[in-house]
Nucleic acid binder design. Structure first.
Length: 147
DNA sequence: CGTGTTTGACCGGCGC
DNA sequence: GCGCCGGTCAAACACG
């Protein structure tokens, strides 16, 4: 077992999709997040819209029942480490303290050439045992092999 | 050298 | 305007 498999095997405690990713308040909990049987790895695969063989797959729209890629999704895990290794290469480009939270928010961009995907990582402001990871954008390249 | 991190500066939107 | 706030840039730095 490599470090990647180990680290992404965190239970997902909640999962959000953003219909309007310009508006952080407009989040819609996914119906299938209730089961809590998803790992961070599952969430990464679904959120980026790429399946194991690299084809576009996406997540299930609970209204239409169809799979579609989402521009922005977020999930919460209970984790002691903040940087979940999701198999992609990320370059950190910023860190900010956000209002009403004692914890900084970290900004990452996908290292792949021309890929527009970004993610944010921060600890839950009320319960620091939880980590909130937000992805925005859809990768324009092949996913890592182990995804 | 090539790549990634750190960190203050900078910028744009928004409310007053 | 001006200041707050969240997001990004980029120069310096670290490290293999």
């Amino acid at each position: 077992m490599n470090a990647y498999c180990h680290e992404t095997n965190f239970q997902v405690f909640d999962f959000f999709e953003f219909n309007e990713w310009s508006n952080d308040e407009d989040v819609v909990p996914m119906n299938y997040s209730q089961g809590l049987n998803y790992t961070a790895n599952d969430m990464v695969v679904n959120s980026i819209g790429l399946s194991n063989n690299g084809s576009r797959e996406g997540i299930i729209n609970r209204d239409s029942g169809k799979k579609e890629s989402r521009e922005k999704v977020a999930f919460i895990t209970k984790s002691e480490v903040e940087i979940l290794d999701d198999g992609f290469k990320w370059r950190k480009y910023g860190k900010k303290m956000v209002k009403n939270s004692p914890n900084p928010r970290n900004y990452y961009k996908c290292s792949a050439e021309g890929c527009p995907v970004k993610k944010r990582v921060e600890r839950d402001k009320e319960d620091q045992r939880y980590v909130v990871t937000t992805y925005q954008g859809i990768h324009n390249h092949q996913a890592p092999n182990h995804l």
